[in-house]
Design a protein around this nucleic acid. Structure first.
Lengths: 219, 219
DNA sequence: TAAATAATTTAAGTGAGCTTAAATTAATTA
DNA sequence: TAATTAATTTAAGCTCACTTAAATTATTTA
């Protein structure tokens, strides 16, 4: 048994919209690693309770109530990540899974305390904005997935979109950290991989990796 | 639905034994606020999985496996309480309920980090010992419930056994904190209440209150 | 020691959140 | 546009952790 909560569904829907603009039940099922039938059930419930609107084949939308809940959860998650990283000293590539556990079991009051201790940070260690208590989301720098940067151009890593331990551990060991400057040296069209330089070293990145690294363009 | 976990049962059994020496299903049901029948079910399961031994009307015992699990949970709980109090700044009378949420969703690794930050504390803010990683429990000062202290004698508050917000809030506002020195001025036999002095003020405490305050005797 | 009381167990049932398999519906492609 | 493919829903069923009510068993008390 998995026992995923309503909150998890809302978070996945929210992040799906944030990242790809549209979310359908299959995407939710894949992300939560459950059957489509289970998602159908839960969407019915979320719809009945006015968290989402939904039309088959047209995608799921968050209604006011659902968006608020999702943002509250995302806030809790990202504040925990920042706290675990900055105060507790958990490594960058482990904070996501710890935060995922804690986010469901912390009161708003506790989260506000953590935020104060951190001095009201605007971004988490992966570069994602931390929603304020009132739901406002800090403005992000305009940035692009690394695979869209042209040969010869440079950028600063501002965000990573995949939070799996393996992916982040790889980036960590390659020195591909937030705020690092990189330059695109070459691209291989046949497999989409990309050659970049960081810290005067050259690295070959698969398209799967480069699609999940977001950089701010610089001259 | 309440959905109390196996861990909660073990914790209640452990603390029951710690405090009164013996635990039966009814006590567990009362503490967890569920029906006796639910406890019967779970005890069957805990027994089958070798966490506890049990004979009707004879009480529940923790087996090695169950004791280890319970101690692990108690450790997590008390380290969180200490962390929330010392590092996060949550008030004394609120840490128990926050910790109760967090204790189920933190890895051993996270707990070890918190313990290090706290410099390996031996007691939590309520005066209870924090089990070490290896399961060892720090030695406590010999102490007695306040209602057993004789008139004219003094003591130092070392532990409180009721962690409810209302109880602790009352103690907090009366200045009855851990390490405080108190003296028993008088007792009323007809209702078991007791008059003590703390910080040069006199207080009347019901027997329900004084039974939950543990003091170390001093001359 | 029999009756009263208290503790415990059994029985039947509920709701949440899943599962798989089959059926339906929509979108895409030949 | 018909056939194929993909997305979605329905149906039936499972487990878990509860519930209440009734039955049983042990302990206590008169």
């Amino acid at each position: 048994m998995t026992n995923i909560s309503k909150e998890d569904y809302l978070r996945v829907i929210y992040k799906g919209i944030e990242e790809t603009g549209v979310v359908n039940p299959t995407m939710v099922a894949v992300h939560l690693n459950i059957s489509n039938a289970a998602v159908t059930d839960m969407i019915k419930k979320l719809k009945r309770e006015k968290y989402v609107s939904y039309n088959p084949y047209k995608g799921i939308q968050l209604l006011q109530k659902g968006k608020m809940e999702a943002i509250r959860l995302v806030r809790r998650h990202r504040i925990w990540e920042t706290f675990l990283y900055q105060i507790v000293g958990i490594p960058w590539y482990e904070i996501d899974e710890e935060a995922e556990n804690l986010e469901h079991s912390s009161s708003d009051n506790l989260i506000d305390h953590l935020e104060r201790i951190l001095n009201y940070p605007e971004f988490d260690p992966h570069g994602h904005p931390i929603p304020k208590k009132d739901g406002k989301i800090p403005r992000q720098k305009k940035c692009f997935p690394l695979d869209q940067i042209k040969i010869g151009n440079s950028g600063i890593i501002q965000k990573v979109n995949d939070h799996s331990k393996e992916f982040l551990f790889y980036l960590f060991n390659s020195g591909l950290l937030i705020r690092k400057k990189i330059k695109v040296i070459d691209k291989r069209n046949f497999d989409g991989s990309i050659i970049i330089s960081v810290d005067n070293k050259e690295l070959v990145l698969s398209d799967k990796i480069s699609k999940n690294i977001f950089v701010e363009k610089i001259k």
